[in-house]
């Protein structure tokens, strides 16, 4: 198996690492960098539990992304969304709206919601629901997640002035 030396920036920190060419970004985050906040749910890009944020605010499935292709990239995971001791408005909204049950989909769902709001700051309910397709939650029926994203949208509009 060939190996690649890459520099990967995760949550603001550079990591110079050697990755095997068959390793996914998810495996490298979890196993090599010991960052388990990004979750393995299906390994086939269907559930979104492994979503991470790229610099352009798009969310990708890290289980389908080869780590070797990420040289020089900056990514943000759920734990990296907190600034200082202040949670990201999306995370705070998930708390305020009890949009979490087992929590296993939550890191990916939060990342996906941040991406959605970056691209469409004032989405309609339907746009939120469509934007969250590809992220599966088996606990909540999505009601409180949609409410949380709507609330985060309003909160972020407020802080952005």
């Amino acid at each position: 198996m060939s190996k690649h030396m890459i520099t990967l920036n995760v949550n603001g920190e550079d990591h110079d690492i050697v990755v095997a060419s068959n390793k996914t970004l998810l495996e490298v985050l979890r196993e090599q960098l010991n960052m388990p906040d990004t979750k393995y749910g299906c390994g086939t890009g269907e559930c979104g539990a492994c979503s991470v944020l790229l610099e352009d605010n798009s969310a990708i499935n890290s289980c389908l992304t080869l780590a070797a292709t990420m040289d020089g990239k900056k990514i943000t995971t759920a734990s990296g969304l907190e600034k200082g001791d202040k949670l990201h408005p999306v995370q705070q909204a998930f708390i305020d709206h009890a949009a979490v049950q087992c929590g296993f989909c939550t890191p990916g769902m939060v990342v996906k919601s941040v991406s959605l709001l970056a691209k469409n700051p004032r989405p309609t309910e339907q746009e939120i629901r469509e934007g969250l397709e590809g992220s599966i939650c088996r606990c909540t029926g999505y009601v409180k997640i949609v409410n949380a994203v709507e609330a985060a949208s309003k909160a972020m509009a407020g802080t952005a002035g």
Partner: peptide, 23 residues
């Protein structure tokens, strides 16, 4: 009252430890 869930902050941050996270 719908108080803040006791486990929720760790879950939105992804720091809650599931079995697969144990090393």
């Amino acid at each position: 009252k719908s108080i803040e869930r006791v486990d929720i902050k760790a879950k939105v941050l992804g720091t809650a430890v599931y079995a697969a996270d144990i090393k």
